[in-house]
C-alpha cells in the first residue's frame, strides 16, 4: 500500500493564497455569467487581502478590503445596468478549461527563481503613521488634489444639459 505523503512545508499557505488569487482573477475574466464573474472577482480581492495579512502588512490588507468592498458594490450596480440583453452561460467544460488554464498560468511564478539583489538590506524602523503623515504628507496632499479635481469635474459628466455648441448652426 502506498501512502501519499503531502509535504506541507513545500506549499505554504502564502503559496496557496497566491494560487487562489491567480485562479480567481483568471476566472473573473473568463466567466461569461456576470454574477459568477463578480463573485470570483470578490474572492480574488479577499485572497489578495489575506495574502497581505500573511505578509504581515495589516494596513495594506485593511485598505485593500475597504477598496474591494466599494468596487464590488459598484460592479453589481454596473452589471445590473449593462447586462440585460444576452446572459449566456458557459458549459461545465468551459469552466474546467478556465481552471486548468489558470493553474497553468500560475506555474511560472512557482518554478522561476530570480536572483534579485536589493540595495536596501537593513530594515528601517519606521512606524506607519510617521511614514505616512510626516515623510509622505506631500503625496497625501497630492492625492487630495486628485480627489478634488475629480469632484470638480464629475458634474460635467453627470449633469444632463442641453448645450449650444459653437459652430453647429
Amino acid at each position: 500500500m502506498v501512502i501519499l505523503e503531502v509535504n506541507v512545508d513545500v506549499l505554504s499557505y502564502l503559496d496557496a493564497l497566491a494560487l487562489i488569487l491567480l485562479v480567481t482573477a483568471f476566472l473573473a475574466i473568463h466567466f461569461k455569467n456576470a454574477f459568477y464573474s463578480i463573485i470570483s472577482f470578490g474572492a480574488m480581492f479577499v485572497s489578495l487581502s489575506a495574502f497581505y495579512f500573511g505578509l504581515n502588512a495589516q494596513f495594506a490588507a485593511v485598505f485593500q478590503l475597504v477598496v474591494a468592498v466599494g468596487t464590488i458594490a459598484v460592479f453589481f450596480l454596473v452589471s445590473e445596468v449593462f447586462t440585460s440583453e444576452k446572459d449566456e452561460d458557459e458549459t461545465v467544460k468551459d469552466r474546467i478549461l478556465g481552471v486548468i488554464i489558470a493553474l497553468t498560468l500560475s506555474i511560472p511564478s512557482f518554478i522561476i527563481d530570480l536572483k534579485e539583489n536589493h540595495l536596501l538590506l537593513s530594515p528601517r524602523g519606521l512606524s506607519f503613521p510617521y511614514a505616512m503623515w510626516r515623510l509622505r504628507v506631500l503625496d497625501v496632499i497630492a492625492q487630495g488634489v486628485v480627489a478634488l479635481t475629480l469632484a470638480l469635474g464629475i458634474m460635467i459628466i453627470l449633469k444632463r444639459r442641453s448645450v449650444k455648441v459653437m459652430g453647429e448652426k
Partner: peptide
C-alpha cells in the same frame, strides 16, 4: 520582504489614485 513600512504607504497612495480614476 525588506521590513520597510514605506512600501505600504506607497501602496495606499498608488492604489487610491487608480481607484479614484476608475470611479470616473
Amino acid at each position: 520582504l525588506l521590513g520597510d513600512r514605506m512600501g505600504q504607504v506607497f501602496f495606499i497612495l498608488a492604489l487610491s489614485v487608480d481607484t479614484s480614476i476608475t470611479a470616473v
